[in-house]
Design a protein around this nucleic acid. Structure first.
Lengths: 140, 140
DNA sequence: ATGTTTACTTGATTGAATCAAGGATCATTG
DNA sequence: CAATGATCCTTGATTCAATCAAGTAAACAT
């Protein structure tokens, strides 16, 4: 379990609740991944493969080094959740795709990670809209 | 930079914004720590030492193994940001405290991590209260 | 054809995290 | 008070994430 990112000293109640939210969210994500014997990083990559794509595209989207993706995908491949096919259009590149088992595990992960759905679900539709608007504004 | 914890496929707009918020938050936290050549974990531990406390208390609060804290505190100590004094009341235990330099770095970190403050600051006081109430309800 | 960029891999290193095991001290209790 | 057990922390081993530097191979450009 990763250490929480805050709370440092919150200068307002809103900030404190925000700290809390992020902490609970991150822990829930990691716990859901752990249920399927995945790390957060593995669950993350697996979740981005609804369509097959190249290593570079993954690295860019996830904001990390390509060699990091190589590593994570290699582990997913070893677990039989992903394949690395050669790209017929460019033999330097490789296309990563989920296997059927990868699809299943990914689906089970999405089911296991209930936190966000549950949190939103505690709000009425009106409140959900309010929250969306407030967070958008807060994000700038 | 840690990989983002989501977005998996969001089933509502509110969920998607939530994903975004957590992602941006986490990245901002790590970036602020990196400005001071700290890892997230180091910044986190350093931030919890407004009062000196034992290793075990830190581990429990942060929800991790004691040996993880040993490691992180050892690095903070090597950086001169923290001391491990013997506890006069219990010679098994050690009290961790920030050094003056640790105080300064921690303060600079709190200053560098502007994200939460800034986000909240984009909202009017009324909106801040609404957000607090909504997030509390969502957290259950 | 040559040189450059692109896509990815490899190897090395650092740090976080967890687990198993151990030493030292405290606390209990027979 | 001595033996037992619990508590606090450390050590060692292992796994994974992340980054960097360097390398290979293929595409591209002139």
């Amino acid at each position: 379990m990763a250490l929480p990112n805050g709370p440092v000293t919150a200068s307002s109640e809103a900030e404190a609740v925000l700290f809390d939210l992020v902490d609970v969210y991150d822990r829930a994500y990691e716990a859901a991944a752990a249920e399927l014997s995945l790390s957060s990083a593995q669950a993350c990559v697996l979740g981005r493969l609804d369509e097959r794509r190249g290593m570079g595209a993954l690295a860019e989207e996830l904001g990390c080094d390509a060699s990091n993706i190589t590593q994570i995908v290699a582990r997913l491949e070893a677990l039989g959740l992903v394949t690395r096919e050669p790209n017929p259009r460019d033999r330097r590149a490789r296309l990563v795709a989920r296997t059927p088992r990868g699809d299943e595990i990914n689906h089970r992960f999405a089911t296991a990670f209930t936190f966000a759905r549950a949190a939103i679900g505690r709000l009425s539709p009106d409140e959900q809209d309010q929250l969306t608007a407030l967070l958008r504004k807060a994000l700038g």
